[in-house]
């Protein structure tokens, strides 16, 4: 049904048309999820800042930013590929949309693998959720819970990209759905932009 169908007809004067903001329910739900999820991440990051401030001699174990820079690059690029995919879908280029969606998923997987590799290296150095060789055990608690929460989001996003991609191919989902998923993916990217300075850069060894 089109907007025109909704507003036409013997409608008495003074009535408003259609849905208030013309945002379809699914898309609005995604925005609402993003708002709630922002609150969740904000709570975690504020909690981290709070205990970091309250703890003398907070450990700063990171020596290089190479790995995190590569990860960041991959994630930002994947936002771009997502954008291209959605744009292709909008233009009706189904094959292109599909290709870029899967490239995005692949970038997500790469990001996750690099992340897991980093985790394993830290664990090998003796860091766990509650102790580490450099100082207060809270460092590990904060690091693993915040990056873990983010990694969960990336993993969920990758699965969603693949599922939605396949269903888009089978025409069960359309360009709108791809766009909504894109919102989520950009959000995950944006959260990372807060995680990097707060969790990595602040904890670089001088």
């Amino acid at each position: 049904m089109s907007q025109a169908d909704l507003t036409m007809g013997g409608r008495p004067a003074g009535l408003t048309a259609g849905p208030a903001f013309s945002v379809p329910a699914k898309k609005m739900a995604m925005w609402l999820f993003i708002i709630a999820d922002t609150a969740t991440f904000a709570a975690c990051l504020v909690a981290y800042g709070f205990i970091r401030n309250a703890t003398p001699n907070w450990p700063r174990p990171f020596h290089s930013i190479t790995n995190v820079a590569i990860m960041t690059f991959i994630l930002v690029t994947s936002s771009l590929t997502m954008l291209i995919g959605v744009r292709a879908a909008r233009a009706g280029d189904k094959a292109g949309a599909l290709r870029w969606t899967f490239i995005t998923a692949a970038a997500g997987i790469l990001f996750a693998l690099l992340h897991v590799r980093e985790w394993l290296a830290l664990i090998a150095e003796g860091m766990t959720l509650f102790k580490n060789p450099w100082g207060t055990g809270l460092f590990g608690s904060a690091f693993f819970s915040i990056t873990g929460l983010h990694l969960t989001h990336v993993t969920g996003g990758v699965i969603a990209l693949i599922v939605v991609g396949i269903r888009y191919k089978g025409s069960r989902y359309n360009a709108d759905d791809l766009e909504i998923l894109g919102l989520y993916w950009h959000f995950v990217d944006m959260v990372w932009m807060f995680v990097v300075p707060l969790v990595y850069l602040l904890n670089l060894a001088h």
Partner: peptide, 16 residues
């Protein structure tokens, strides 16, 4: 999530 989308998106004709 449902309440907000209901209020914003599901209002019938004329229900500003």
């Amino acid at each position: 999530l449902n309440f907000i989308t209901t209020t914003l998106d599901m209002r019938t004709r004329g229900m500003s």
